[in-house]
């Protein structure tokens, strides 16, 4: 298979790396000052549109991550990408905005455990201290030489790293190399 369906996984000392199942992702563009836009998004997602940089909103149907002052990423584990895009498009039909399906464009890796921050700090210049990068925070940045979206989705902590599909192998090889010092003793790196 070209797109290897087997999920990648690595378990080390206080560290888990893994590839997340594909999820629906839509890039949403629009004017946050337009109340009808914000309302329509809420109707579909049952979430308030996060307006502050680096914030996200998470609910049962979807989560919304801030990407820019007029850019958001809407993700859902429970809906198909085309359905999510279609329902947003329908709700936003009369509003100047853009709804673009980007679910196939990305791979999401999860980096979890108390060594997760150290692994990411090897390639990421963000300050990931829990006060500076609290739960739910997201940021677009570079991880080593790959542009990524980092999202602290779980308190354990668990970071989700969104990376372009074409960089799937590079990002995994980098994460594995960065994690090797936390390999369980019996494990061969």
């Amino acid at each position: 298979m070209g797109d290897d369906a087997s999920m990648r996984r690595f378990i080390g000392r206080d560290l888990v790396l893994g590839e997340c199942p594909a999820r629906a992702c839509v890039e949403l563009r629009g004017d946050p000052d337009d109340a009808s836009f914000v309302r329509a998004v809420r109707t579909v997602t049952d979430l308030p549109l996060p307006l502050d940089p680096g914030r996200s909103a998470a609910g049962l149907l979807a989560s919304i991550l801030w990407l820019g002052p007029d850019r958001w990423l809407v993700c859902s584990d429970t809906q198909a990408g085309s359905d999510l895009a279609a329902s947003l498009r329908a709700a936003l039909a009369a509003i100047a905005c853009a709804v673009v399906d980007v679910g196939a464009a990305r791979i999401v890796y999860a980096v979890g455990g108390s060594n997760a921050r150290a692994v990411l700090a090897k390639g990421c210049s963000l300050d990931l201290h829990e006060r500076k990068f609290p739960l739910g925070h997201c940021a677009q940045t570079l991880l080593a030489k790959a542009p990524v979206l980092v999202h602290l989705s779980g308190a354990e902590p668990t970071f989700e790293i969104h990376v372009a599909r074409s960089l799937r192998d590079y990002a995994w090889a980098w994460l594995r190399a960065a994690a090797s010092e936390y390999a369980a003793e019996a494990d061969d790196a």
């Binding site: 940089p53 680096g54 820019g68 002052p69 210049s125 963000l126 940021a139 677009q140 940045t141 570079l142």
Partner: peptide, 10 residues
């Protein structure tokens, strides 16, 4: 002005 302080490489 949006994301705060970041390294020049970004």
């Amino acid at each position: 002005p949006w994301c705060g302080a970041r390294d020049e490489t970004e």
